[in-house]
Computed example of a mutant assay.
Amino acid sequence: MLRYLIAVALAASTLGHTTAALAQTEDSANWAIVIHGGAGVIERGAMTPEREAEYRAAMAAALARGEAVLDGDGSALDAIEAVIHGLEDDPLFNSGRGAVFTAAGRNELDASIMDGATLNAGAVAGVTQVRHPISLARAVMDNSRHVMLQGEGAETFAREQGLEIVPPAWFFTERRWAAMEQALGALGLDIPARPEGAPAAAGVDHGELERDAREHRFGTVGVVALDRAGNIAAGTSTGGTTAKRWGRVGDSPIIGAGTYANNASCGVSATGTGEYFIRLTVASRVCALVELQGLSLQAAADQVIMDELRALDGDGGIVALTPAGEIAWSFNTPGMYRARQSEGGEAVVAIYGDED
């Protein structure tokens, strides 16, 4: 009852908001959402104003998709899917259609999702023909007795589940192909043939290519959401690292490393050098500090990312959210594409390290 009275009082005293928008019953929570689009050497002046505007618009659109689900009393899990679907279809980001290429000239996609209410989770690794890996991860969670599927087996399951299958060339983008060629050249490795069905070769802006190499070194996308039922969920999707070899899998599909959610503590989605995030179990470690040591979410995030991860020479960042609606992000790179919004509040979109 006290929570209800406080909410009503705040609503009555805040211009521009209605009582209906801010007041809540004893059985409901305010929704919240936080998103990242990858971290790296993202510095002011390195991007054209036009490209920066594109990223800000894409992150704002991602928030809007999440808001539409959560404001309609949808679940946190549904919000995760809605947000990441759009990011997986946007060639600006290293997931889905914007995924980087392996040394073999393939797009191998990873994703995971976790429900904080039940601790159920699903993950996929190394898929090449599933348009939305995040939906496949959720299908693994909801419709199988497993947590992680990989490669051809995951794609067989996707077909059985009726998920959208696309030809591998659907994920092709010229700038990612050029980045792979550049990386293989530096390693002294052979350049593979262009994928069947890819468009004819086109020129790329090599200045933009260099910026991409710095900015998208850790080009994962991820979301943590809190719904009005008070449940949190987290999800992550990625194309991995440029010119990765031998079936490499990073932290994104590994529950506890790149993704974690628990209503007893928090939800986390990570982006960074996956090998270090795996070793440190970054996502679950942040939540453990909140639950077991009583740290604030921001303090826990900073301890893991700014201190512990750096001590291992790891780099990257996270976004995080508690069932109480506390939002945090932390990154030890110059920038991270990120956005957040809480019910009744203003949307925040940021890129550089000096932005709130």
Score class of each variant (00 low, 15 high):
residue 256 G to R: 13
residue 173 T to P: 06
residue 130 V to P: 03
residue 183 A to F: 09
residue 213 A to W: 00
residue 26 E to V: 12
residue 160 E to P: 07
residue 45 G to M: 04
residue 344 G to Q: 14
residue 231 N to P: 03
residue 338 R to P: 12
residue 76 A to Q: 07
residue 259 T to P: 07
residue 226 L to F: 01
residue 26 E to Q: 09
residue 265 S to W: 05
residue 288 A to Q: 09
residue 249 V to N: 09
residue 19 T to A: 10
residue 243 A to E: 05
residue 126 G to D: 01
residue 174 E to D: 07
residue 217 R to Q: 15
residue 211 R to V: 10
residue 319 V to E: 04
residue 350 A to W: 03
residue 142 D to E: 03
residue 308 E to T: 10
residue 339 A to F: 12
residue 59 M to Y: 06
residue 154 A to E: 00
residue 240 G to W: 00
residue 16 G to Q: 11
residue 72 G to S: 12
residue 199 P to M: 15
residue 14 T to W: 11
residue 137 A to I: 11
residue 85 H to S: 06
residue 185 G to K: 14
residue 15 L to T: 09
residue 35 I to N: 03
residue 156 T to R: 13
residue 188 G to V: 10
residue 27 D to Q: 10
residue 280 L to W: 00
residue 28 S to I: 01
residue 328 A to C: 09
residue 297 L to A: 01
residue 137 A to H: 10
residue 94 N to L: 07
residue 334 P to L: 06
residue 2 L to I: 12
residue 84 I to E: 00
residue 34 V to G: 01
residue 215 E to F: 08
residue 89 D to G: 08
residue 277 F to C: 06
residue 251 D to L: 03
residue 147 V to G: 02
residue 277 F to Q: 08
residue 123 A to N: 04
residue 91 P to F: 11
residue 64 A to D: 12
residue 313 D to A: 14
residue 83 V to H: 01
residue 112 S to E: 15
residue 311 A to G: 15
residue 228 R to L: 00
residue 331 F to K: 03
residue 355 E to T: 10
residue 3 R to G: 08
residue 330 S to V: 11
residue 278 I to G: 03
residue 244 K to G: 01
residue 57 A to P: 12
residue 314 G to I: 11
residue 54 E to K: 15
residue 283 A to S: 01
residue 145 R to C: 02
residue 306 M to G: 06
residue 301 A to R: 03
residue 197 G to K: 00
residue 268 V to P: 05
residue 64 A to N: 09
